[in-house]
Structures are given as structure tokens and as C-alpha cells.
Amino acid sequence: MIVFVRFNSSHGFPVEVDSDTSIFQLKEVVAKRQGVPADQLRVIFAGKELRNDWTVQNCDLDQQSIVHIVQRPWRKGQEMNATGGDDPRNAAGGCEREPQSLTRVDLSSSVLPGDSVGLAVILHTDSRKDSPPAGSPAGRSIYNSFYVYCKGPCQRVQPGKLRVQCSTCRQATLTLTQGPSCWDDVLIPNRMSGECQSPHCPGTSAEFFFKCGAHPTSDKETSVALHLIATNSRNITCITCTDVRSPVLVFQCNSRHVICLDCFHLYCVTRLNDRQFVHDPQLGYSLPCVAGCPNSLIKELHHFRILGEEQYNRYQQYGAEECVLQMGGVLCPRPGCGAGLLPEPDQRKVTCEGGNGLGCGFAFCRECKEAYHEGECSAVFEASGTTTQAYRVDERAAEQARWEAASKETIKKTTKPCPRCHVPVEKNGGCMHMKCPQPQCRLEWCWNCGCEWNRVCMGDHWFDV
């Protein structure tokens, strides 16, 4: 396979590697080409510095992935760790964990309700045991953590790749202090920090972006993250068709209702045909949960890209028209025109101005929308079919299609509260000796007794199943 190397943020060049090629071997190839010592090179990928003893497969490097290699003399205490030698983080029983690669970060837990604080980093599902597709590297999971809308060759929703760059020099040479644990960490600028490894760059702020994971991409090709779309790892039924499908869209209502993408497309087109989208002054033209839940309008309007190009163009047109109407304007009634106009409040005669090729020149009556006339309008008909009709959803289907309910059931079956801080902690095999993952707590306690870890627990039921 081919990976592209950008040395000291210059133009990239291809390097041929195998899945079992080590990072140090990659350094040696680059060092020979650039005429520099291999031990002064640092390989940066997806916000993480890659260790010498890791392989291309370990690092989730795919065909035509772009890695950054910078030349920086080692500072005291760094060289041993980078070589894969006596790194205290690798000691058996050590409590410190390697910062998780962005290629394996899962933010789907952050669609849980606000009262489930902490689960994004504490609760991990076991539903990723799908067998890898044919042709994928051994052991590589097909679980997708992110979804994007690819405006490039795909023109559809695709699995996405999370990447990070330095907000100062805009190069992907920043190593994160810690990985993101929720969508806010990724979507809110300057929320996460790190250290830029580019020479002479003092940058410390992280800037995240997404790429389409279905095809090789260049540095400049980015895609918009659709953070309401998630892999259906909890096997929730769709609120409309009641099938279990994946991926799904999880509405931001209190129940976190789930809808499959085909039904979401149908829901949007139906509402669009009836012009029953909601115009929100802050958000724009949007839709609420299909069950009509309060405070559930979709905030990231790129989710409506699921409509496809033709329907999305209609959505944008109707949204612009609705904006004009909300501002007190009118639409030209001549067939084939429909231009938005903003006449004076007491102006009865409205002319669709033909300047700049935008208007048709038609003069019409503001009251009856017919060709302009003197005197009273002959008839004014009330528009028919403008009443909002509820999208029919079966109550039982709505009850079963809740992301929140599956989460709470998982928590109930696989977790116990920490005796000190009461945060839910998952036990997935292993011994009875637990350690609270909350940095402010870190209590060592017994899963069996529910009390602080002691010699009695150690001698009596340390390794009970």
C-alpha cells in the first residue's frame, strides 16, 4: 500500500509500505531520502505521535493516508518512550493509558441525555464484534464512529474520518494533550489543546475536521460531520418502519427517538411537499423529531443533505422563500418566477423588478396576487391545505425507538455506581478489583462488596467470576 509523507509540512511524497511495516522502518526510509538522522524524526498522525514499535496496521493507516513527519531533536526523557523501550505506560498493571487514536474515538455516547454525564468515556458498548469485510486488514473493525456528507465523488452519507490540525499553522502536526470525549470537544473551536510539532510553531489549540472515509482524499478535501447519525450498535428499532437498520439518525429530543435514513428521507420529502418545515429565527429551515417532541429541531442543517441534490435544492429554495415571508415580504405569483420581494408595508401595487435578471417585471396586487387592478379585489380565496398535519407515529413504536432507553438498560445490566462519587462504572470481565475512572475520584473498590478495596476482598473473592 501507499502512504503519503509530508516532511516538515512540505509537499508530500509517496512511500510504499506493508501492513506489518513498523513506524521506525518508515522513519528509516524517510531519513534516507531526506539525509537526516532517523532518531530525530517524529511521525504524527490523527493528533498522535506514533511509536517506533507500532506497525502501519496498528495505527489504522489506510491506503493513501497522509502522515506528517517532522525533524525535531529529542528532548530529555522522550527518546526512550518513542523507541518502544522502557515506557512506564506499558508496564503490566499500570494505570496510565495511551491517548486514544482519533481513528478509534467514539462519540456516540454523547447523544445520551444530559443526566448521563461521564458515560462518553466510561461506558463502552460490546456491539462492535462484526466481522471485518472481505479485503480489510485482519482485526480491523467495521464499526463506524462518525458519518459525514461527502460532496465529492460519493454525493451521499458516508463513514467519516476525524482529523485534527494546529489552529495556528493549519498543519496536521499537532499532538493532542488528551483525546475528545464528546461532540462539544470536536465542534467547539479551541476547546481542546495540544502541542504543535512543526518547527518554530508555538500553536497549542486544536482544530478538528472530518474527511470522507470511503475514498482517498487530499489535504484540502473536508466534509461536514453529521453528528446525529450513528451506527445502530444498540439495535434500536426505527420509529417509523420498526426495522432494525444501521446507520440511524438520533433526534435530540428527551427520548432520543431513532429513525433509519430511508424513513428520514421520506419524512423530509413529505414535509417538504406540504411546505411544513419549521422556520426558526436562529436555526433556519428545519424539522423536529418525527414524533413531534418539543425542543427537538435539527440544529445542523447539513443533515438535510440526505435528501439528495434535487430535493436539497428545493429545500434551500423553500427556506429562502419562507425567510422572505417571515420578513413581511411577498413572492411573485407569476408561474416560473417566484422571486422574493420586500415592498413597503402599505404598498398595494407590487412590481417584480426586472433588474439584474432576477425579476420578471410582472405587476400584481398584494392582496389577491392577481395582475394589478384598481378598486376592490374580486375574490380572495383562503389558501387550502395549509394546516399542519401531524406525522403519524405509532405510540408503541415510539416507545421502542428510544436510544436513551437502550442506554439505561445497558447501564443497569453492566454497571454499578462507584461507592464514593456514584458514577456508573462498567465491568466487562476481569477481577473484582475496580478503579473509578473519574479523575477527581480514582477510588479503588470491590465490585462484589461495593466497598473500598481491602485485604478481605483480596483474599476471599479477588478473582471470582
Rank of each mutant, 00 (worst) to 15 (best):
W183N: 01
C260F: 01
F24T: 07
V269N: 04
P294G: 13
G84M: 12
A363N: 15
K412I: 12
A405D: 13
G284Q: 04
S246L: 01
A383K: 13
Q438S: 04
I69G: 00
C449T: 01
A371E: 14
T168V: 09
Y267H: 05
C166K: 00
I298Q: 00
Q155W: 06
E28N: 08
L307D: 00
W447F: 08
M327K: 15
Q178H: 11
N454P: 01
D185N: 02
E221F: 07
L174Q: 03
S407I: 10
C260A: 01
H11P: 04
A230N: 11
F24Y: 13
V148K: 00
V248E: 01
Q252M: 07
F209S: 14
E426D: 12
Y372R: 03
G284H: 03
R442F: 07
E300F: 05
E376T: 11
I66P: 04
D106C: 06
I188T: 09
P37N: 10
V244H: 04
C368N: 03
H303Q: 02
I23S: 01
I69C: 11
F24N: 07
C431I: 11
H303L: 06
F381M: 09
C150R: 00
C169R: 01
T175M: 11
T237I: 08
S116H: 11
S131V: 12
H200Q: 14
L287T: 03
G361A: 07
S136G: 14
T204L: 06
P88Y: 06
A230H: 15
L325Q: 05
H68S: 04
C436L: 01
L226E: 01
C323R: 15
V5S: 03
D185W: 00
A371C: 08
A46S: 09
G308Q: 05
A214C: 07
C166F: 00
S218V: 10
E399D: 12
E374Q: 08
D39I: 03
H373L: 02
N144H: 11
R191I: 07
G354L: 10
K211V: 15
D464H: 15
M458Y: 15
V157E: 04
Q25Y: 07
P417D: 15
T410Q: 09
R140T: 13
D115E: 14
E321P: 03
P113R: 09
G459N: 15
L102Q: 14
G359S: 10
Q40E: 15
Q78M: 13
P133S: 11
K299V: 05
A383P: 11
F264N: 00
I306M: 08
R33C: 04
P424N: 13
G93E: 14
V380K: 10
S198L: 08
T410R: 09
V244L: 06
E16M: 07
L249A: 02
P417R: 10
N254P: 13
C263N: 01
V224D: 12
L226C: 08
P88V: 11
G35L: 05
L187G: 03
A339P: 03
C182A: 08
S193R: 15
E309V: 08
S378I: 12
S116R: 10
E310D: 11
H227W: 10
C169Y: 01
P73L: 07
K408M: 11
T388E: 14
H422Y: 10
R256H: 09
L102I: 12
